[in-house]
């Protein structure tokens, strides 16, 4: 993967949605060897130039373990494919703190057609980061956005600082299950402010699901009144019966289209991307690195501008570091 010719051919094959090529591109982006960094940057640049990253819809899917996120993701993929859209999925699982290894089990719950090049699923370990997203996840999302119409990013856990998914997604979908006590604890932890859309999954459980649904609606109204906004939409879904899935896609589409028509999407993406790049920068170069780059505010401003100018976040991060006095 050294020559430009090789890179060009990889980009071409990836943009033609050849699974092995898309996978290879993500692997390059994931690679931690310093020698490959310029290659990864160049690759992202070429991909975004050849592809259509701006129009890809990015949906973050998060929620506590066991609520059926993967099964719901599977249904979303199915629905998007029915609508004729291509889908890339990034499923992030936690790494083992003991060994650094990980069991990536989401694929087991996804019903995929191995012959369909219009859908693609990549599992990734969180790499021991507290946030729900792997270090390389940002780059992987950029690869997927260049190739597919819709990009779903699935992360486990919500609470603590595991809400990184909001930085790489246009919309964050929070999935919870009935009768789990989730609603109450989310209200306490202030988590209900993060999602743009909520789904109470396992609607097939019947009355418990409906009760959780109305509890949640009431809580969201209260918290929206307090902050002066309007409450995010809540849906009852079931991965088993497929109930609510079509509507969920509709609601996500509506949100996206509103962002576009109000001219907010670009701004939102730049801000999120800059925040993500800032976090990665700080992790990589430390607080001292941030200071050398002029402090947090200055750094975020620099990153925001670089990203607004069309640099991908790897580039923007490197440039910000290079610019240090």
């Amino acid at each position: 993967m050294s020559s430009d010719v090789e890179l060009d051919s990889l980009v071409k094959r990836a943009l033609a949605r050849e699974p092995a090529a898309v996978a290879r591109a993500i692997s390059v982006a994931e690679d931690r060897r310093a020698s490959l960094e310029p290659v990864a940057e160049e690759l992202l640049r070429k991909l975004s130039r050849g592809g259509h990253p701006a129009s890809a819809r990015r949906v973050g899917i998060t929620g506590p373990p066991g609520v059926g996120k993967s099964s719901l993701t599977s249904r979303l993929v199915q629905r998007y494919r029915e609508l004729g859209r291509t889908v890339g999925v990034l499923a992030v699982d936690p790494s083992s703190p003991r060994s650094g290894g990980a069991l990536l089990g989401d694929r087991a719950r996804l019903e995929l057609d191995p012959d369909d090049a219009g859908s693609f699923v990549r599992s990734m370990a969180s790499g021991g980061q507290l946030g729900g997203l792997a270090r390389a996840a940002g780059a992987a999302v950029e690869v997927l956005c260049a190739v597919y119409d819709v990009v779903l990013i699935e992360t486990t856990g919500v609470g603590q600082s595991e809400t990184d998914v909001e930085h790489v997604a246009d919309s964050v979908l929070l999935v919870i299950q009935p009768a789990s006590g989730d609603v109450l604890s989310f209200i306490k932890a202030g988590i209900l402010e993060i999602p743009d859309v909520l789904a109470v999954n396992k609607a097939d459980l019947g009355s418990v699901a409906e009760r959780a649904f109305s509890d949640l609606q009431a809580a969201l109204v209260v918290s929206a009144e307090a902050s002066g906004g309007s409450p995010p939409p809540v849906l009852l879904t079931s991965a088993t019966t497929r109930a609510g899935v079509d509507e969920l896609v509709r609601v996500l589409d509506e949100r996206y289209e509103r962002l576009v028509s109000e001219g907010k999407l670009e701004q939102l993406r730049v801000a999120k991307s800059a925040a993500w790049a800032y976090r990665q920068f700080r992790e990589r170069y430390g607080e001292r690195g941030v200071e050398r780059a002029g402090g947090k505010d200055q750094l975020v401003a620099t990153l925001t501008q670089a990203i607004a100018n069309g640099e991908n976040f790897l580039e923007s991060m490197r440039r910000a570091a290079v610019r240090e006095p």
Binding site: P19, A23, R24, L104, R107, L112, P114, D115, R122
Partner: peptide, 21 residues
């Protein structure tokens, strides 16, 4: 480790190997 459980077809295994790198 990627593990999909039992009864997967050779085609599914190959596709998983491809996607997952």
């Amino acid at each position: 480790v990627v593990y999909e459980g039992i009864r997967v077809t050779p085609k599914e295994i190959a596709r998983a190997a491809a996607d997952e790198g």
